[in-house]
C-alpha cells in the first residue's frame, strides 16, 4: 500500500516537474528570507551571545528560564496586552463609525474618503513625533488649549507620567491605525446587498436593528480579518512607542517588542533578545490560533 502511494506521489511530482521547477526560485527565496531568520532566532536563543564579542556560549534554556521566572516578564505581557487591546478596540470602533458615516450618501463623500486615509499614509515615526509635540508639557498644543480654557494651571506631562503615558501613545496609535480599519470595513459595508436592508425595512426594522442584525453579521468576516491583522500589527508595533517615549517613563510603555529591541539590539544581549522574540512569536501564534478557533469557527 505504502509503495503504491509513494509511486503515485513520485508520478505526480514527475508529471508536475515543470511547475515545481518554476516555483523553486520563489520557494528558495522565501526559505532564505523568512525561514532561515526564524530558525536562526530559535538557535540564537539557546546561546549567550553578546554583540561586543565574537563568541557564543551554549546555555540551553537558561534565557527562557530567567525570563519566565521573572515577575517583570508577566508585567511586560500584561502591559503589552493592554496596549494591544486598547489600540485594536479603539481602531475598530472608530473605524466602524467612520466607515458607516462614509458609506452614507453624504456630500463630499469622495473627499472624506481620501482625507481619512491621510494619517495612514504618513510615516508612523513622523506621526509619533507630531503627537509627542501635541502632548509636550511645555510646548504642546493640548496643554496650551487646556491652559487657555483654565482646566489646568501648568503644563501636564502626559508622556512623563507613568499613569498616563500608555494612554498618550495609544491615542497616537489609534489615530494612525484607524484609516486602515475604516477602509476595510467600508469595503465590507459596500458588499452587503441593499436588498437585505430593504426587506428589513419593509418588515419594520429600525436603523439600530438593521445595524445589529444585518450589518454586523454581514461584516463578521471582514471584522475578523481586520482585527486579526490589526492585533498582529499592534503587537509588533515599534515606531510609535519608541519615538514617543522609548518605553518609559519607568517602563510604563515598554511592550514586548520594545523589550526585544532594548535587550537584543541596544544592549547587545542577542541571545536573551532572541529568547524574548521566540516567546513573542509563540504568544502571537497562540493568540491567532485561539482567535481563529473561537471567532472564525467553520466560516473560514
Amino acid at each position: 500500500m505504502g509503495r503504491v502511494f509513494r509511486s503515485q506521489r513520485l508520478r505526480y511530482v514527475h508529471q508536475h516537474r515543470w511547475a515545481y521547477l518554476l516555483i523553486a526560485p520563489a520557494a528558495v527565496f522565501l526559505l532564505a528570507v523568512v525561514g532561515y531568520p526564524i530558525v536562526e532566532t530559535f538557535r540564537l536563543s539557546l546561546y549567550q551571545s553578546q554583540a561586543s564579542t565574537a563568541t557564543e556560549t551554549f546555555v540551553g534554556l537558561t534565557h527562557y528560564e530567567a525570563i519566565l521566572t521573572d515577575q517583570a516578564f508577566y508585567d511586560l505581557l500584561y502591559r503589552t496586552g493592554k496596549w494591544v487591546l486598547a489600540g485594536v478596540l479603539g481602531k475598530t470602533l472608530l473605524g466602524l463609525l467612520i466607515a458607516v458615516a462614509l458609506n452614507a450618501d453624504v456630500r463630499g463623500q469622495k473627499f472624506f474618503r481620501t482625507a481619512f486615509l491621510i494619517p495612514w499614509g504618513i510615516p508612523y515615526a513622523i506621526s509619533a513625533v507630531v503627537f509627542r509635540w501635541i502632548e509636550h508639557p511645555q510646548y504642546g498644543a493640548l496643554n496650551a488649549a487646556l491652559l487657555k480654557l483654565g482646566v489646568i494651571e501648568q503644563g501636564v506631562g502626559i508622556l512623563g507620567n507613568p499613569d498616563t503615558a500608555l494612554l498618550g501613545v495609544v491615542v497616537a496609535d489609534i489615530w494612525i491605525g484607524t484609516p486602515f480599519m475604516a477602509i476595510i470595513i467600508l469595503a465590507g459595508l459596500q458588499s452587503i446587498p441593499v436588498e437585505l436592508y430593504e426587506a428589513a425595512s419593509i418588515d419594520g426594522a429600525d436603523r439600530y436593528q438593521q445595524f445589529r442584525y444585518i450589518t454586523l453579521p454581514q461584516l463578521k468576516g471582514v471584522l475578523f480579518i481586520a482585527t486579526l491583522l490589526s492585533t498582529i500589527w499592534t503587537f509588533v508595533s515599534f515606531d510609535v512607542i519608541w519615538t514617543m517615549t522609548r518605553g518609559g517613563p519607568l517602563n510604563a510603555t515598554t511592550t514586548l517588542v520594545i523589550q526585544i529591541y532594548q535587550v537584543g539590539l541596544e544592549n547587545g544581549a542577542m541571545g536573551r533578545g532572541a529568547a524574548y522574540s521566540v516567546i513573542g512569536f509563540f504568544v502571537l501564534l497562540m493568540f491567532a490560533l485561539v482567535y481563529i478557533r473561537v471567532y472564525a469557527g467553520d466560516d473560514l
Binding site: P137, G160, N161, P249
Partner: peptide, 21 residues
C-alpha cells in the same frame, strides 16, 4: 524644576533654556 521631568530629555531642557523659559 520644570514640570514633568520624567518626560524631559536633555535636549528638551536645553531647548527650554535656549527659548528663555
Amino acid at each position: 524644576t520644570q514640570p514633568s521631568p520624567l518626560s524631559s530629555t536633555r535636549q528638551d531642557i536645553r531647548e527650554l533654556f535656549e527659548s528663555g523659559s
